[in-house]
Each structure stands twice: as C-alpha cells, then as structure tokens.
C-alpha cells in the first residue's frame, strides 16, 4: 500500500472507483453461476465478468501505472484484447458441446436437430 498513496487525489479516486466497480461487476457475473437455474442460462453469466469486469479493472490498472510511472505503453490492452477475443470462442464451443450432449442423452426441453421450435428448457 506504499506506492498508491503517491497518486494525486483525482487519480487515486478514479482508480479506486474503477477497481470497485469492476470487482462488483465480476461478482455479479459469478453470482449468476449460482442463481440461474440451468446450463443455458448460466452460459450468459460469465460474459458479464469478462466484458465488464476485465475492461474496468484493466482501465484501473492502466490509469494507475500511467500516472505512477508516467509511461504511456498500455500493456493491459493485451489482456483486454485477448480476453474479449477468446471468451466468446470458449463459450460458443461449450454451448455446442452441451447441446450435443443433451441431444445425445435425449434430455427434455432441448431443441431437436432440424426442428425449429422455441420451447423453454426445463432440465
């Protein structure tokens, strides 16, 4: 905690605000894993943590180091870029895998192949 107090007041409050807000967003996203009722609903929850939480916390980190060390190379952008590009790929693949498994085991409430319906999933 020694270096953070060297920040000017405006930057300190901005960093803390972004950090708190990002952590809260991440918490809500992970809470979604507990509170939503089936897999396809839970699939939506982590995207909040990745899109909202990562961007806010990386912004806080960028601002902090930019002011502290007065450097303007933002390597946190790499994390933001990497996470926002890769998470949709993981989740889409996971959704496909889940759909495949549910069809294979003939679970109820999962849309059949080649049959467009918009039934509510109830497993």
């Amino acid at each position: 905690m020694s270096h953070l107090t060297d920040l000017p007041t405006w930057a300190a409050f901005a960093v803390c605000g972004l950090l708190l807000f990002g952590a809260a967003t991440t918490l809500i996203g992970s809470l979604g894993l507990l509170r939503l009722s089936n897999f396809y609903e839970r699939l939506h929850a982590p995207t909040i943590a990745t899109s909202g939480g990562t961007i806010l916390i990386c912004l806080a980190s960028m601002l902090c180091f930019a002011v502290l060390q007065s450097r303007w190379i933002f390597h946190e952008l790499l994390i933001v870029f990497f996470v926002t590009v890769t998470t949709p790929v993981t989740l889409a693949l996971l959704g496909q895998a889940a759909l495949y498994r549910d069809r294979f085991e003939e679970q109820n409430g999962v849309p059949r192949k080649h049959k467009p319906d918009s039934e509510k999933s109830t497993d």
């Binding site: 953070l4 990745t50 902090c64």
Partner: peptide
C-alpha cells in the same frame, strides 16, 4: 464453465494485487 470463470476471476485478482503493490 465455472472453471473458465474461475480463471478469469483469478486473473483479475492478480491484476488487483498488481495495483495494490504497484
């Protein structure tokens, strides 16, 4: 799905450690 979320959360935790210790 939860493991993936755990990875992301751990990564954010490390970033916040980085901010804390500058």
């Amino acid at each position: 799905l939860a493991l993936d979320t755990l990875y992301i959360n751990a990564m954010l935790m490390l970033l916040s450690f980085g901010i804390r210790s500058a």
